[in-house]
């Protein structure tokens, strides 16, 4: 059973890789994340939306998460989707410069991406082009700053001793 499923997943991954390669005319970097065995595709910003559309067309219609990781000199926008029918999982990782560059929205494809993108905007300051309603979701509207950035200054924070 397990090896069947593993084979199935490997097959699905290879097919996805091929389809993405076709769509993005070959310039992609497909890998398997180490401990996870999830197909991880590293992309440029202009390949993000075509890749997402390819995944959507291949039936990966359930959204796991859409988030951003702040690597002090650039952001990485990460999207993970999976398919209910085939069990295929794909993670797109797209590097963005830190400020000012808007990313395309995918909230017209996956319904749940709407609030996830709002949260990414709230926490990181990412702007999504084409999003119907980009405003702060978790913090009050008048909050200044985007807390999950690494350079966020916490004005209400209290110094925490290191316990080890």
């Amino acid at each position: 059973m397990t090896s069947d499923r593993a084979n199935q997943q490997r097959q699905a991954r290879d097919e996805l890789c091929e389809a993405l390669g076709v769509r993005l005319s070959g310039q992609i970097n497909c890998a398997l994340t180490g401990p996870d065995e999830v197909l991880l595709v590293r992309l440029e910003l202009d390949q993000y939306r075509p890749a997402a559309e390819t995944l959507w067309d291949r039936g990966l219609d359930r959204l796991d998460f859409l988030t951003c990781v702040d690597w002090r000199d650039h952001f990485t926008l990460t999207l993970q989707v999976y398919s209910m029918d085939s069990g295929a999982v794909a993670r797109l990782a797209c590097d963005l410069p830190r400020d000012g560059v808007p990313a395309p929205t995918i909230s017209d494809l996956w319904f749940l991406a709407n609030w996830e993108e709002r949260e990414a905007h709230d926490m990181f300051g990412l702007i999504f082009e084409g999003h119907p309603d980009l405003r702060r979701i978790l913090l009050p509207e008048a909050w200044e700053g985007h807390p999950l950035r690494k350079d966020y200054v916490d004005r209400v924070g209290i110094e925490r001793p290191q316990y080890f």
């Binding site: 994340t33 401990p35 996870d36 796991d64 998460f65 988030t67 990781v69 990460t78 993970q80 993670r91």
Partner: peptide, 19 residues
């Protein structure tokens, strides 16, 4: 590295993505 785990909680699917 990074890892993602998901499971079925009483309300739906929860997941944790660790980098």
């Amino acid at each position: 590295g990074e890892a993602y785990a998901r499971m079925e909680s009483p309300r739906g699917e929860i997941g944790c993505y660790l980098v």
